[in-house]
């Protein structure tokens, strides 16, 4: 039996379309796609290159050895330096020019203000009732249970 001309034409069109799909697919699929799973494996490396903003606590020990010692003797030892001082990667790279914040009492209260949502084990104060003044007048931030000595307090600007 003769194949109807319609079918012949349509077959040609189909072959052209499907063929161009596969050509496009082989050209447009990214090189590392599918190496690890249904994704571009190179994306892992790309995402890993993102720049750091937080240096990590261990970086500080090298240059701020004194504070580090004091810090880890006190009750704030579980804290991160950068929690209070803000992201420090730029400071670590260039300490002379990139300065960090010295947090004020609002930072202390952020963590210590009385709040019924906070767990009971955690030390909280009511700022209205607690002693007047900036917190660091009476607490060394790096070792909060200690009182700062007079000259130490004045030497910090």
């Amino acid at each position: 039996m003769k194949v109807p001309p319609q079918i012949v034409r349509l077959l040609i069109v189909t072959v052209v379309l499907v063929g161009s799909y596969f050509v496009a697919k082989s050209l447009l699929t990214p090189p590392t796609f599918g190496e690890l799973g249904w994704y571009r494996a190179a994306a892992l490396e790309e995402l890993a290159q993102h720049k750091l903003t937080y240096a990590g606590k261990q970086e500080c020990e090298v240059c701020h050895d004194d504070i580090w010692q004091m810090f880890h003797a006190g009750k704030h030892q579980t804290l991160s330096c950068e929690g209070c001082h803000g992201p420090a990667m730029r400071h670590v790279d260039d300490p002379e020019n990139e300065h960090l914040l010295k947090p004020g009492s609002d930072q202390c209260l952020r963590c210590h203000q009385q709040n019924p949502s906070r767990p009971d084990w955690y030390t909280q104060i009511d700022p209205e009732e607690h002693l007047e003044g900036e917190c660091i007048e009476c607490h060394i931030p790096h070792n909060p249970t200690e009182m700062p000595e007079e000259e130490e307090a004045s030497s910090e600007q």
Binding site: A24, L28, T29, G34, W38
Partner: peptide, 10 residues
């Protein structure tokens, strides 16, 4: 948008 045809996630 072409990606949806090139690498369709089944």
């Amino acid at each position: 948008c072409y990606e949806a045809m090139m690498t369709p996630h089944m």
